[in-house]
Design a protein around this nucleic acid. Sequence first.
DNA 1: CGCGACATACCAACCGGACGGTAACTGTCA
DNA 2: TGACAGTTACCGTCCGGTTGGTATGTCGCG
Lengths: 192, 192
Amino acid sequence: MDTITRRRAPDDTRAEIIDKALEVAAELGASGFTLDAVAARTTVSKGAVLHHFPTKVALLEGMIDHLGQMHTDGILAEAARDPEPYGRNARAYLRATVTEPVTPQDVSIGRVVMAACAIEPSLARRWRTWVDRVKVDDPSDPVGADDALMLRLLADGLWVSDLFGIHEVSPEQRQALLSLLTPGHPITANDA
Amino acid sequence: MDTITRRRAPDDTRAEIIDKALEVAAELGASGFTLDAVAARTTVSKGAVLHHFPTKVALLEGMIDHLGQMHTDGILAEAARDPEPYGRNARAYLRATVTEPVTPQDVSIGRVVMAACAIEPSLARRWRTWVDRVKVDDPSDPVGADDALMLRLLADGLWVSDLFGIHEVSPEQRQALLSLLTPGHPITANDA
DNA sequence: CGCGACATACCAACCGGACGGTAACTGTCA
DNA sequence: TGACAGTTACCGTCCGGTTGGTATGTCGCG
């Protein structure tokens, strides 16, 4: 009947764990990202964390899936407000990566994810799976495969650059990148 | 007379440690990259490793510097054989990243470096320092800053993609990327 | 009851690095 | 040139803190 006395729904706990795990990643970075730290921040115990995510990698998978879903939403939203069909999908990918405010928290989380993928191959494969899925969202996109790939590589490169502070990229330069792909003006030679 | 009993030159030991450390990184990956594993592969002991590199991060710095030097050489060689001055520098950067054979060992080492930079901020800063240095190698390069930046971001994105197996990039596509920057045909809008 | 959602207590192994000691090399000064 | 002092290169061992994971108990709900 009523859910007042009932114990909390497990899904809520699971969601809270992921949420708090992202907080820990944002604040403590990869070296501070431990099961104990995550559990300490949740309302539940470490045992509960291990109950929902039997291993640390499983927790990271949950986090990556969550982040992937968020980013997918951002990309779809970006594509939805783009009237120009040519290259819409790839452009949305780039736009969602470039435009979204990159807070220090995002950077820290990104680093943790990056480290995790670099250490654990299964997580890297999960990343790839996400990319594959987001790539086929709009097969009717008329843009050439080479140009679309180029935009995605560019977006990833910019993301990595932001993560590690490699290049100073001004807002104007980001804007210039956004206007790269226009109909009738393919970038790579293969896309005639 | 003979050098059998003589102690080896310390620089040789240091070089050997870095060399074997790269081997360990290539074969065992980030999770297997421990001081013990490195020491076990060298002819010297763990104590000697710590003597030359007082901390694990210091060893990684040495490895990154070494790799950076190698890559710098590759870039300079690529630029030297390029008759076209326009965008030569940025193109060489891209070319050295794309063209150089990416062996599984390279991928494994790259992952270790990536993880290290993601975990330890000082290593990421070292990466940035290297990029800054390699960027000013040829200030007379007439290519626009935006286009040069774009090529570098593209190269980094491709490198990351190769590291994690994110995109399948055919040799033809890599070739298409190489011919991106040509005189009289700027890519970004800002470089008129 | 029984099953899933937790809590508590605990463990064992890994790993970075500290440390005391030794042997080899280098400079110095008589 | 040779003895002595100081320094550098290196060895082998040990420690202890951290951390991922387990084992077992408990409680509520259906």
